[in-house]
Design a protein around this nucleic acid. Structure first.
Length: 275
DNA sequence: AGTGTATCCTGCAGGC
DNA sequence: TGCCTGCAGGATACAC
């Protein structure tokens, strides 16, 4: 589910609600989302204060005191829901996997229907090593079009697969990869190394444009995704190709096509994106 | 270095 | 109504 814009929306919501809270207790309802034993996870979080909330790619980072943090990968259906008091009745999350209880009486729930998400307590050093294996942040000021162009030249893989690889660029998933490729006029199966300078520059600009616009819209809700307030992402209204197969291209009227490669659906306009 | 396939899960839509 | 198939914002491991 959540890509960079959805993770960013969640991060912004949590900054307003859970920073400053102290974790008094943790309930692990679904141990399979942990990447470590229940006991080392509990030992790594209990008694710690939440100092800040950050994002790296699609991961939400809950920064704790004493150089520790909780790294949350949201997977396909994961979400982080803050509550001022223990939720009752209809407000209760449907698939609570981990619940962090605060000294204030509030709590933070990692809710994940399919449980492809992961939650892990780490120290900063371990996280930094992990983070160094991920690609650059596409929205970072220092990430230039020339960097994208240069990196593309090393790979024969289809550009859509290249964009989904978190080791190459961090945070891009299937929705925004497809949308940016449409705006840049690039066929999803175009070999990365064949993308010319001008095209790479256009892709860089459209990637940023799509990600920024999606953040502004609060993300994209297809079915599961909800922000920290339970609201939906409005970017779904601005999708040009994702999920629009057999509909007309909004630019040229050609029928949007769906193909499958790399185990994922790709959506494109055969008129605007010629291989 | 690629690709295809399978795996981890649940839920929903569509066809019959 | 119910059963079946296919599909899903992700990540990884495997064989070829």
């Amino acid at each position: 589910m959540p890509e960079l814009p959805e993770a960013e929306t969640i991060v912004r919501g949590l900054r307003r609600t859970v920073v400053g809270e102290t974790i008094d207790h943790v309930r692990v309802a679904r141990p399979d989302v942990l990447r470590q034993s229940r006991s080392s996870f509990a030992a790594g979080v209990i008694g710690h204060r939440i100092a800040a909330i950050e994002r790296r790619g699609k991961n939400v980072l809950i920064q704790l005191d004493q150089a520790r943090l909780i790294a949350v990968n949201l997977g396909m259906t994961g979400g982080l829901l803050p509550f001022r008091a223990p939720p009752r009745g209809a407000a209760r999350p449907t698939h609570a996997a981990i619940t962090f209880r605060f000294g204030s009486g509030g709590c933070l729930v990692f809710n994940d229907t399919r449980r492809f998400g992961t939650v892990e307590a780490l120290d900063e050093t371990t996280w930094r090593a992990r983070s160094s294996r991920m690609g650059p942040e596409p929205l970072a000021r220092g990430y230039r079009p020339s960097h994208l162009h240069a990196a593309l030249q090393h790979s024969r893989s289809p550009i859509r697969s290249w964009l989904l690889d978190q080791r190459r660029v961090a945070g891009i998933g299937n929705i925004y990869a497809n949308e940016a490729l449409f705006l840049a006029g690039l066929h999803p199966q175009r070999p990365a190394r064949n993308v010319g300078r001008e095209e790479a520059y256009a892709l860089h600009a459209h990637l940023r444009e799509v990600l920024n616009a999606a953040i502004e819209a609060g993300g994209t809700t297809i079915r599961d995704y909800r922000n920290a307030d339970g609201g939906q992402g409005e970017y779904v209204r601005r999708l040009n190709v994702y999920g629009r197969n057999e509909e007309e291209c909004l630019l040229c009227g050609t029928e949007i096509q769906r193909i499958v490669f790399g185990g994922r659906s790709a959506f494109f306009c055969p008129g605007c994106q010629v291989l």
